[in-house]
Design a protein around this nucleic acid. Structure first.
Lengths: 148, 148
DNA sequence: ATTGATATTGATAATGATTATCAATATACT
DNA sequence: AGTATATTGATAATCATTATCAATATCAAT
């Protein structure tokens, strides 16, 4: 089942309709790297069809999120960011506070420890969000041996 | 060194000034529980002195953050939330997606595992943010045995 | 294919949170 | 006290997002 089929299934299930705009936005989204803002997605869509409005992009990326095709990425501030969610496993983020580089990782020990926390407090897990901040190797090197 | 002294030191260090409003906002902030929005802080301040404007509260809670007295709490959406940071150790959050209850916790295993991730990618740690989502015991019980 | 009920769209206004602007005032050195 | 300047309150501006609404597109049933 590919993304388009997932969407069609989701739409049919609740009496919603497939449209040209909707499909175009989906394809644009799938063609972009992860961590896309609605604004950047709009720009990409606009290049393919300049008749599509901004509100429609906002509406649909949100719909994709409900349909399980997109997921809101952790953001410190600024506009909401979306990443691909269909057949893209859960992962956490490691971001450089200097240059903004982002590494996606999955760590078994962390996942295990999180389950233990859930159990300790009697919570039923439904998801989590984690972002580590730091200096990437390049920025750290530049930081320790400045040109001065 | 109490919070007020920390602030005074921070201000002097950079040629800033202590003011009546600033001190009042600090005291109001310290008197409130953690996870305060600027709006709620403004309401509290307004009760003590209705001459203090909203912008001033926004400006100062931000200043407190820079001074190390406050810290932005993880928020999923909505207005920014602040928590006490002076002599309040780092912790992570476990939130109920149903009722919004928040548990603050520190887990050694998670902290250790995070250090390992930093090392693996050669990053220099500077901080992190983690929020676990789930159903709290009460909500989970209600969920599993509905009144129906 | 035509119809009809209704979901969707684009344009734009509205919202909510936060920041910028600016003249008047308060503060802290001397 | 005098003076330079940081701060303030009021308000306008901004940014991301959502709501409104009349016109249009979609889809299931004919």
């Amino acid at each position: 089942m590919d993304e388009r089929q997932v969407l069609e299934h989701y739409l049919k299930e609740r009496g919603l309709k497939m449209t040209k705009a909707r499909l175009l936005i989906l394809e644009a989204f799938l063609g972009m790297e992860s961590h896309v803002t609605a604004e950047r997605l709009y720009e990409a869509v606009h290049k393919l069809d300049d008749g599509i409005g901004q509100a429609t992009v906002f509406r649909n990326i949100r719909l994709f999120t409900d349909a399980g095709l997109a997921r809101e990425a952790c953001r410190d501030d600024g506009p909401r960011q979306y990443e691909h969610a269909w057949r893209h496993a859960h992962h956490d983020h490691l971001s450089c506070i200097q240059c903004g580089a982002v590494i996606e990782f999955v760590d078994g020990a962390i996942e295990t420890a999180q389950q233990a926390v859930y159990k300790k407090y009697g919570y039923v897990p439904s998801g989590h969000r984690m972002e580590l901040f730091g200096l990437c190797p390049d920025c750290a090197a530049r930081h320790n041996s400045p040109q001065t």
